[in-house]
């Protein structure tokens, strides 16, 4: 049993490493194999040949490709991709590390809000509290899930920040926790809708089970029946949907960082892309991929911990 479990974990880890390697190689080769001189892209068309040659030597672009690739892989493994081009003297990985914090806060809080809101909506749509009106919860969930974040986040921000002043304006340096909480709440809305839809379907499956009738017969309240008895066996689909939505969540986080002018991995990638800061761009893309792969792994573990049928 333990052997099989550890083998499954090993397969997962190997797969995650392979995904990261493919992504890292994509960034690496996209810059080097496609036509165009990266040094000219960095320095601009007006730069002279001596400057470009110096930069090529600094980036190692004058070496054979396989040697560059080996250096790059070693850099990834040792978390040292050299200096940032835009800010000489600052390690590229250091800048990535600084950006990881704000993005993790934003995404983590969004997952928390999304899960709580979504599970709440699923319980309201399945439980007896709303009576016939619970069908409306379903309709709202479908409508919200079909509304792209980009279509509503800026408008809601305009309404709440500019018209009624209940949340800080985008780009406000003193926004503090209110700004973070508002951005995460926006990011959580699509996630909550997906969690709500899947959670409702899972609860509907569990809702017919005999053990719920047993719990009711023992005199448990509705709240106890649905939250303590029905919810844990429905955790699997809910955790899985959170895991599959993580990619969209990271993409949404980049859009929101841009909207609110927040620091983070998204802003760092945009800046590195605009200024052709190769080491930082490579580091940031790989770090986001890593963040994504690791959180997916954690979701699988949470699933195993919550659902008694998976644990064994």
């Amino acid at each position: 049993m333990i052997l099989r479990a550890s083998r499954a974990v090993l397969v997962r880890v190997a797969e995650a490493a392979a995904v990261l390697l493919v992504l890292a190689s994509l960034v690496f080769f996209a810059m080097r194999l496609l036509p165009g001189d990266p040094a000219a892209l960095v320095l601009g068309d007006q730069s002279d040949e001596i400057e470009r040659a110096a930069l090529r030597a600094k980036l190692g672009l004058d070496q054979p490709l396989w040697l560059q690739y080996a250096h790059f892989l070693r850099g990834l493994a040792t978390l040292d991709l050299g200096e940032s081009l835009r800010r000489p003297g600052v390690a590229a990985m250091g800048r990535v590390r600084d950006a990881l914090g704000p993005t993790s806060e934003l995404a983590g809080l969004a997952v928390l809000f999304g899960a709580v809101l979504g599970v709440g909506a699923a319980l309201l749509a399945s439980g007896p509290w709303l009576g016939e009106r619970r069908r409306h919860v379903d309709r709202v969930l479908v409508a919200v899930a079909a509304t792209p974040l980009l279509a509503f986040a800026p408008v809601v921000t305009y309404a709440l920040a500019v018209r009624v002043h209940v949340v800080p304006l985008p780009g406000d340096p003193d926004a503090g926790f209110a700004g973070l909480a508002f951005a995460s709440a926006l990011l959580a809305v699509p996630l909550a809708a997906q969690v709500g839809r899947v959670g409702r379907a899972a609860l509907a499956d569990v809702g017919r089970a005999q053990f719920l009738s047993v719990a009711r017969a023992k005199g448990a309240t509705n709240l106890r029946v649905w939250v303590l008895h029905a919810l844990p066996p429905s955790a699997g689909p809910i955790v899985t949907v959170v895991a599959t939505q993580l990619g969209a969540l990271l993409g949404g986080a980049v859009v929101l960082e841009r909207l609110f002018e927040r620091a983070g991995l998204g802003s760092l990638m945009l800046e590195a892309y605009a200024s052709r800061d190769l080491p930082v761009l490579e580091g940031a893309v790989v770090a986001s991929g890593g963040l994504f792969v690791i959180t997916q792994g954690i979701a699988a573990l949470v699933h195993a911990a919550m659902d008694p049928r998976v644990r064994g």
């Binding site: 797969e15 995904v19 992504l23 994509l26 960034v27 996209a30 810059m31 496609l34 165009g36 892209l41 895991a243 599959t244 993580l246 990619g247 969209a248 990271l250 993409g251 980049v254 990638m269 892309y273 761009l281 893309v285 986001s288 991929g289 994504f292 997916q296």
Partner: peptide, 24 residues
């Protein structure tokens, strides 16, 4: 099936960053 899993869950914008870094 597994390839579909990976591709569908993976953030498209990261792939976009990786590939688009080659064009100005």
């Amino acid at each position: 099936e597994r390839a579909c899993d990976l591709v569908q869950a993976f953030p498209t914008f990261l792939l976009a960053f990786a590939v688009l870094s080659a064009v100005r």
